[in-house]
Amino acid sequence: MPYYMNGEQLVSSDCCRDLGVLVTCDLSWSQHTAHVSKKANSTLFLLRRAFQKSSPIIFAKLYKTFVRPLLEFANSVWSPILQKDILLLESVQRRATRIPFGRVRPQYHERLAIMKIPTLSNRRVRGDLITTFQAMSNKSSPIHKLFILSSHTLTRGHSFKLAKEKFKTTVRQHFLSNRVFQQWNSLPEEIVSSQSTMAFKIKYDIYSSQ
């Protein structure tokens, strides 16, 4: 249905930018994924020209400072669903980890271990859990009501377990409160009951590295 203003028909679009995130009418994140991957690759190209001979540890710091934030900005709002989008994002990090090793280099996961960098998929899970903790521990949070505590008190696990929401669409299935459900409920009590966000991060990083 066309919309008009002062007799002029407004141009319609299937995609719009909202606070740096490209939102499409079908809530697919493929267009945003392609956009941030291209932007991150451009920045990575500049780093490669300037710091190609840096050590893996130094280049890891450069990557985490200038490139990775482009791939992770607001990713509690958006999260890739399709495997091709997940691989596209990870391909940027794969490329970044090759640079300090040159032509003779170890496998991807070995490079990650040497450079002390987790996969982007693991980083997204961590970001979702941090956002969930912040929302649940602060009743004045604008997204506090998105998370509903489970009424089943006899089940195993911690005292802040989430109730599982019923959904009919893939989009809703991958909404923050649903995609974080399993990971959040499986956390130990001492992590979810942390007194601050920083304490939660520290405890979770130790837990996930075991």
Rank of each mutant, 00 (worst) to 15 (best):
S42K: 11
V180G: 00
A60T: 07
P69R: 03
F167W: 12
L44K: 03
L19D: 03
L146S: 04
A135M: 04
S12P: 01
L46C: 11
R68A: 11
K38A: 15
N6D: 15
R126K: 14
T119W: 03
I114F: 08
K39Q: 07
L10W: 01
I117G: 00
R111S: 06
D14E: 13
V11P: 02
Q173D: 11
H35Q: 15
V21K: 00
A96V: 07
R124Q: 09
Q183S: 14
A135D: 01
S76E: 15
S30F: 09
E190W: 09
M115W: 01
F66M: 08
T170M: 12
S150H: 03
E90P: 01
I86M: 13
D14K: 14
L187C: 00
Q93G: 03
L46Y: 13
D205Y: 04
L112V: 00
A74H: 03
V21S: 00
E110P: 02
C16V: 14
T153P: 02
L88D: 05
F59V: 04
N75M: 10
S42T: 11
L47Q: 01
N6T: 12
K164L: 12
V77R: 01
V171N: 03
F167M: 09
L27G: 02
V171Q: 05
S28T: 14
T153V: 15
S76P: 06
N122P: 04
E165C: 11
L44R: 03
K116T: 11
S137A: 13
L44G: 01
L27M: 05
L22D: 04
S159T: 14
R172K: 15
S37V: 10
Q173P: 08
T43A: 12
W78K: 01
S76L: 12
P80F: 13
Q83P: 00
T131M: 15
Y3I: 14
S13R: 10
R48L: 10
S12M: 09
N138S: 08
K116S: 12
I99P: 01
S137K: 11
R123K: 05
R103Q: 14
L62R: 00
T170A: 13
L70V: 08
Q31F: 13
H174R: 06
F66S: 06
E165A: 12
L89E: 04
L129Y: 00
S91A: 05
K84M: 06
S141Y: 10
E110R: 06
T97D: 02
F66A: 07
Y207P: 04
L89I: 08
M1H: 10
T169L: 06
T132A: 05
T170C: 11
L22P: 00
